[in-house]
Amino acid sequence: MNTKNIFYILKRIVLAVLTIWIVITITFSVMHAVPGGPFTKEKAITKEAQAALEAKYGLDKPLFVQYTTYLNEIVTRFDFGPSLKQRGRSVIDIILNGMKTSAKLGVIAAVGAAAIGIVLGAVAALRRNKFIDKVIMVVTTAFVSMPSFIMGSLLLILFSVTLGWLPANGSTAEGLILPVITLMLYPMAYITRLTRSSMLDVLGQDYIRTARAKGVSGPRIIFGHALKNALIPVITYFGPMLAFIVTGSMVVEKIFAVPGIGRQFISSITNRDYTMIMGTTIFLASLIVVMNLVSDILYKVVDPRIEFE
C-alpha cells in the first residue's frame, strides 16, 4: 500500500467522523427545536415537579452546555442518557437489547441476499437472453418495485394466514423466518441485477477471450476469472444494503412484532420519547456510516485498478 492509498483511506475516515458528528449535531438541534419540552405532554404535573424533572435530565442548563455534555457522554462513555418513557432504563441498554434480535435478523438477511443474489446473477449472465435469464429478470424487477412493507404483508397473508405454515409473531426463532425472507428479497434482487450486469461486462473483456484462447476450462474461466472480477462492484452495495436493512427492519419488525431495535424506534416515535429517538438515530446512522466506510475502502483495496482520488 502506497502513501496515496493511505491518504485516501485517512480522508475517508475523516469524512466518516465528520458525518457522524453532523448527524449528532442535527439530531440534537432538531430535537431541541420541538416546541414545548419533552414533559409538557405529561398530564397533571406541577411546576415544581416539572422543574425537578428538567433539573434531573439537565434540561435547565443553557443549550450549548447541554450539547457539549451530550456529545461528551457519547464520545467518552458511549452513553445516550436515560430513556424518558421507559423509566429506569438507559437508551443504550434498550438499543443493545434490541440489537440482539435485529442484528441476527439483519446478518442472516444480508448473507442470504448476497449468496443467493450472486448465484442468480451469475446464472442469468451466463444464460443471457435464455428463458432462465428472462425469468430471473422479471422476478427481480417485481421484487425491486415492491416496498418492503407490502412484501412483508403479502408473505404474512400467504404463509401464516392462508397456509398457516409459519407463525405471524416474530418473537420465536421459527417466527424469524418470514422477517428474514422479507428483509432479504429486495437486496437479493438488487444484487442479482448488479452481478448480472457486471458479469456481462467482465465476460466481454479481453482477458476472458485470452483465457479462452489459451484453453482454460469453462468453470475455471467462470470462477477464477469472471466471477472474481464481477463481484467487485457488488462490494460497493454493502453499505447501501445495510442502510436498507436498517430501515427495512423497522417495517418488518412492526409487521411481525419482532422485539428488535426497529420496533423500539417506531414506538419511541409514537411515544415521543426524545432521548430514545436521538440515541437510536445516532446509533443506527453511525452503523451505516461505518459500514459505508468499510465497503468503500474494501472496494478500493480489492481492485488495484481503481484510481485513488
Partner: peptide, 21 residues
C-alpha cells in the same frame, strides 16, 4: 456530506420534528 448521511433516518427524524413544529 449530504450524500453520506443515512437519508431514511434523517428523513424520519425531520418528519417527526417538522410534524410537531
Amino acid at each position: 456530506i449530504i450524500y453520506s448521511l443515512p437519508d431514511m433516518l434523517v428523513i424520519i427524524l425531520l418528519a417527526v420534528v417538522l410534524g410537531e413544529v
